[in-house]
Design a protein around this nucleic acid. Structure first.
Lengths: 332, 332
DNA sequence: CTTCTTTTTGCAACCGGTTGCAAAATGTTG
DNA sequence: CAACATTTTGCAACCGGTTGCAAAAAGAAG
């Protein structure tokens, strides 16, 4: 069906090598030859088979893009940025949807079968061991939105979730709240654990502040709403640091439905600064996660690793900052 | 680096063909041989190179997933369903982000270079010619969420947007609104055109109904909000059929900010029934688009085409229905 | 134990490219 | 124009698999 190298060679009356060389840059071809081959190729509508060439060159330009966050709207933005960034560099994202699976084994095998040049694990909930499995298999890997660590075993690009937790606690305390709480995402997500740890570490410095915590079932609107309804029914705190924006928005909905006001009765601070947070009818005060920078940096790191697979692992941590909107009362 | 067929063959003391056959089902291998080979493969950690085998079999199990809707939250759900559905059938999605590009040429070339077995074009805004370009290149293609047609040239799976427009108009009229309007997405999107056409065709039957229309710049919150603010400033209709849910939510935000009430002052009906539409603080009356069925059916069709590439093109159109929530006043 | 049938196995060619090497062509210099 | 350096080209082997075909092995029948 498709036109092959051989056919082009025959039509141009040259050797197959000549055709191959016209299509690999840096190869030695005379101008005359190049013109002859290009004409033949154009006539036949030839374009080289990337997979066949990968056999000898050992490069497919395929990059596995592995994620389990197909329900958090912020990841649509992440996918947008990743796919565009990879495409711009001539790389092709092979998307892998992990759903509930947290065992890397299958993904590793599959992606090796397709000889991907590298893998980006884009998830804030997977354990560090997941990304490590790719490294152990000899595949360059970057864990985006992964758990930061002072001694990373694989390349990690993301934020310091512990610091974010601390920052949220400080913000609440600075605004004069005396009874605050952490409403996390799933307890087994590394990002939840870290944010909580940071939050606690700050609170503990202020013995006068009353603090509590609980966890929603998922990083989702429904889970946030449900959990907040439960909390309101019990003894709600004055302000909550919610595990992420989508959870926050669920919580806001619950508060509104309970005829309580934000921020007068209950304050909320989220994390991510997703597009929706700035929608006027949501107007969520939140901690901005620099997604664009994280993705760009992840891609740069991946590209660097393609040239230098044994690059010493590093953690690239981007600072976050609070975006003041309408769901926390102003500092006194 | 990676273990090859040959090494397994040597370790097991058998021919390369034998190894190949143990890994292709339906091939003739004795139990004894299979055990020997599997042992050697396990010892070495071998798994076959999918790309190499694709050279001879002519099948890569790669499916191009082409889209330009990376800003509409509903597409995260679409990607989730597609990736899972394809994976479950042993197919691998190669994601292509079209951004602003509407010329299929590059995508066609790239996806042919990677010898994809098929292409799914998932977009409600691309012209039918886009998908057709793949067919012309000899690649099986399904256009999901594409424009329906009585004489489709490629396989189309989606909804009847004209009928949806009609349905929306009927709903508004049935609720006693006498001044209604269509607030569309980008005017050049096929879905906008069709929805508008349907809307008009119904309105025209009711000479007593006053109707107007306008278009937002994009299918986005901001665009919807901006357009609605403009409309409120002029002479707003009593009720709007918005081009899609995200546009509707933008419009709702504008209405709320203008101290008007929904549905008392202005009614809104959207289209898609995205997850967010049922969030209690949005509670959008909308036309449900059966995404799950569309995706499932698209995948089934794609799988069928892999066996039968010249399958006669068909349009699979799924009915939509109105989901009653809080943004339209009840019928009198 | 033959003889015939069926299954299993290996050989070798092939899929669509790339690349080291040496021969051929071209360019440079005296 | 000869002698040498440089560039261009083709040959042939290879990348990691698959597969048609015929030989070898195993099983069934007599």
């Amino acid at each position: 069906m498709a036109v092959t190298l051989k056919e082009v060679a025959e039509r141009a009356g040259v050797s197959r090598s000549a055709v191959s060389r016209t299509f690999t840059d840096g190869a030695s071809v005379s101008d005359k030859m190049r013109r002859k081959v290009e004409k033949a190729a154009r006539d036949l509508g030839y374009s080289p088979n990337a997979l066949a060439s990968s056999l000898t060159t050992g490069r497919t330009k395929l990059i596995g893009l592995v994620s389990n966050n197909f329900h958090n709207p912020i990841f649509l933005e992440v996918f947008d940025l990743f796919t565009r960034g990879l495409q711009d560099r001539g790389l092709r994202p092979l998307l892998v949807n992990l759903t509930d699976e947290t065992d890397p084994e299958n993904s590793v095998r599959m992606l090796r079968q397709y000889s991907v040049d590298g893998v980006v694990v884009a998830s804030s909930t997977l354990p560090p061991g997941f990304a490590k499995a790719f490294r152990d298999a000899g595949v360059p890997v970057v864990h985006s939105f992964g758990r930061s660590s002072s001694a990373p075993q694989v390349h990690v690009v993301g934020i310091d979730n512990v610091e974010c937790g601390r920052m949220a606690a400080q913000a609440l305390i600075a605004r004069g709240y005396t009874h605050v709480a952490f409403m996390g995402g799933p307890e087994d997500a590394t990002s939840t654990q870290d944010r909580f740890a940071g939050f606690k570490s700050e609170i503990i410095k202020h013995p006068d502040i009353q603090a509590s915590h609980s966890f929603a079932e998922a990083y989702s609107f429904e889970a946030g709403r449900k959990e907040m309804l439960r909390l309101i029914d019990a003894n709600p705190a004055q302000a909550y640091f919610c595990g992420d924006d989508v959870l926050s928005i669920g919580a806001l909905s619950a508060i509104e439905d309970s005829n309580l006001r934000v921020p007068e009765d209950i304050g909320i601070i989220g994390l991510n600064d997703m597009e929706m947070a700035r929608w006027e009818n949501i107007d969520l005060t939140t901690i901005h996660q620099p997604i664009r920078q994280i993705v760009t940096s992840s891609i740069e790191l991946m590209v660097a690793m393609l040239d230098e697979p044994d690059r010493y692992p590093e953690a690239r941590i981007f600072p976050c900052s609070i975006v003041e909107r309408g769901t926390l009362r102003p500092a006194p």
